[in-house]
Design a binder for these strands. Structure first.
Lengths: 245, 245
DNA sequence: CAGTGGTCTAGACCACTTC
DNA sequence: AAGTGGTCTAGACCACTGC
């Protein structure tokens, strides 16, 4: 061990500080998903820096998909309600290459005490209340996806099966409009598993069939985990598509 | 159909043109992987634009991982030989979270006439010569990955099993140093399959075990596909890790 | 110390959208 | 025509590397 202590932050460019301040405003819901943020000139005045410095901050936030720039119109807070952004996190697509259209069927929505595993991923204390949702998604009448979802009860108070059934559209748009929670990024761990009795029934396939297991943790602003998903995909006629750069 | 023809390129910013010229130099091997490209000031002079315009072009190429900037030293052509970049495209990691270390065993390296399916992916004519490599990769003595690789024979002339066995290190570093071929990006399609007799033997698992099937097409400069891989992962103790943004 | 990339500014002008 | 983001420039200065 060296006696010389590490600098906390040896150097922090102005535009990084601006970026942090814009991020703080997003997190504080000063501007809501879908809304325009102030123009570059206004922000430059507010923070007392040049427009170029604000531009660089916004550039990086846009690259992270937190903001969306539209020439001639303004810069907007990213939203899952936008056309073409509803399925931003869905990597499943038909082998034929067409667009996948999934029909939702919610099976259950229960309030539970969190198991240690789930609590840890959501950064809750073991036993803290969580909501668990079960659903099946179908394509052309065939069940393709079986999914279990865990949410922290604190943020999603009063969520019921009826509310879910009343909603038509992507879940992340639902979270946004009903619980002011915008998903920023997610991490997935993928495995192959053999279908058990339960999955066999839900997906109408023989026991033992190979299925894709996708475990996802989704995060809002500030790297806060707010949703766990455990999905099982039948990949007979569709696949998980990934680009590596 | 409208009688008004679409503009080919309604507007092309200077920095995009600079980007295209740098890209052309990379494709023409004017600067090799691992080498430094000329300084921003030199490039600005060469293209008769300001340094800022060159910067923006380089910024985008760096964001695509084609170039790597190093403050105080210069800008370098990305290479798979670099420490930490050898496994840029490998998304498999142990459930424990440690680093995966795979040992290579090449089983075969044959010259074949390409099947239609492979030829199409490599943009060859059906029947054009291809090289097929079979290998198994093991972690801690356990076989984890069985992989078949197809390469266009034209670009990889004279590749033999002996040459592969003589090489210790990642394949993409091998392609780079022996065949002047740098991989830029890749696309993967992932499914779950049940192990057949052949896979059962290679991976020492029972027939029917669920395996991850990963089909990859890898591209060099100019979006040219130059490698097909069909991998099978045993995901009992490891998983495919993916980040969604 | 010289050379490289990195930050910041101020200003001119262009392209797109809306009124 | 006014307002927005997008491009391009020129210049000053900072941070990091290596001789």
């Amino acid at each position: 061990m060296s006696l010389i202590s590490e600098p906390i932050a040896s150097f922090s460019p102005l535009y990084q500080q601006i970026k942090a301040m814009i991020l703080a405003s997003l997190q504080a819901s000063e501007w809501l998903p879908g809304e325009a943020i102030p123009s570059e000139i206004e922000l430059a005045a507010r923070y007392a820096v040049s427009q170029g410095t604000v531009r660089k901050a916004i550039d990086e936030l846009a690259a992270q998909n937190l903001l969306v720039r539209r020439q001639g119109k303004g810069t907007f807070v990213a939203t899952h309600q936008e056309e073409g952004w509803q399925y931003r996190f869905l990597r499943l697509e038909p082998d034929s290459g067409e667009r996948l259209h999934l029909k939702n069927q919610f099976l259950a929505c229960q309030n539970l005490k969190s198991a240690p595993h789930i609590a840890q991923l959501l950064k809750l204390k073991g036993g803290d209340p969580v909501i668990r949702i079960d659903r099946v998604q179908s394509s052309g009448g065939k069940p393709i996806v079986f999914e279990e979802i865990w949410l922290p009860e604190g943020r999603f108070k009063g969520l019921t099966l009826d509310a879910l059934n009343a909603w038509s559209g992507p879940m992340y748009a639902f979270y946004e409009s009903e619980y002011a929670t915008h998903m920023v990024r997610a991490e997935e761990k993928i495995k192959a598993i053999n279908a058990d009795q339960n999955l066999s029934e839900h997906l109408h396939i023989p026991v033992g069939t190979a299925l894709l297991s996708v475990e996802r943790v989704a995060f809002t602003y500030g790297n806060k985990p707010v949703e766990i998903r455990r999905a099982r995909y039948d990949t007979t006629n569709q696949h998980y598509d990934n680009k590596l750069n």
